[in-house]
């Protein structure tokens, strides 16, 4: 750099490639609109799961769906703090938090305080609580980067972590969300698509038992649209469950070796 006087700029300027385009140019009836990451409307992002991310926990998992990166650790079954209150079923305690660097604007993730209770509701239908009376299972989820469709990724990752911890469940819990933009239904939205969506539908289900543990709909939907969205999500969930199962089998077989 020293020899090239005059070629290098004297002041530092950020390179233009760091500028991200904010608003999606989008019209309501645009059927040919291409998603920013070139996926089809009904195509999910490639999913990646890895168990055993946290050594200190009873079970843990790391999930990466495109830009959304989540790590979940499970502690338990541990002795209940309120030992006086005898209960013949176990207790589940969930906590979801964002890191401060997870969102493009620092510290914005705290809008989603209800994610902890939603995670609780999704999982409590799947865990066999009678197998660990008087004890508590703690599930802690940390969202490292928020790239859209955060809660479904957290729920799927949590169920892999619970399986890794050896907690008895009726079935793996898979979760997918669908976004409605104009007339189109877009599965597994990313952050930019979520911010301009007209409505969203999130399903958490147990694929082998074909049961839905949680369903949340936002925005205005007509009944046939909802059934279409539900059907889409259920198909996607069963495929996601296969991926989760294969990941668990891999980790189990690598342990045996």
């Amino acid at each position: 750099m020293a020899g090239k006087a005059g070629a290098t700029p004297t002041t530092y300027a950020p390179s233009p490639t760091t500028q991200k385009t904010k608003s999606l140019v989008f019209k309501n009836d645009d059927v040919d609109w291409v998603r920013p990451d070139k996926r089809g409307f009904q195509q999910c992002r490639p999913a990646f799961f890895r168990t055993g991310a946290v050594n200190a926990a009873s079970g843990s998992a790391y999930a990466e769906f495109g830009n959304t990166k989540v790590i979940v650790s499970v502690f338990g079954p541990r002795e209940s703090k309120k030992a006086m209150m005898y209960s013949d079923v176990g207790r589940l305690n969930c906590n979801v938090s964002y890191t401060t660097f997870a969102t493009p604007i620092r510290g914005q993730g705290s809008d989603h305080k209800e994610f902890s209770s939603m995670l609780h509701k999704s999982l409590e239908g799947a865990i066999i609580l009678e197998t660990f009376p008087k004890t508590t299972v703690d599930v802690f989820a940390l969202i490292l980067e928020s790239g859209g469709s955060d809660l479904p990724v957290v729920i799927s990752c949590a169920s892999v972590a619970l399986a890794d911890a050896g907690i008895m469940m009726y079935d793996l819990v898979a979760s997918v969300s669908v976004s409605c933009i104009g007339k189109n239904l877009i599965i597994d939205p990313i952050l930019e698509e979520e911010s301009c969506q007209d409505g969203s539908l999130m399903i958490t289900c147990m694929p082998s038992r074909y049961e839905v543990t949680q369903l949340t709909v936002t925005g205005e939907w007509s009944a046939p649209k909802i059934s279409e969205g539900v059907q889409l999500c259920l198909d996607a969930c069963s495929k996601l469950a296969k991926i989760m199962r294969s990941c668990l089998k891999e980790s189990a077989s690598s342990l045996e070796e």
Partner: peptide, 23 residues
């Protein structure tokens, strides 16, 4: 008659056809 929001609360799993029936 449009649905503006839907929340499922409560533990047990439910068959999706039942949800559509509930709607």
């Amino acid at each position: 008659g449009h649905i503006c929001g839907l929340t499922k609360r409560g533990g047990a799993g439910v068959d999706p056809s039942i949800i559509l029936d509930m709607i």
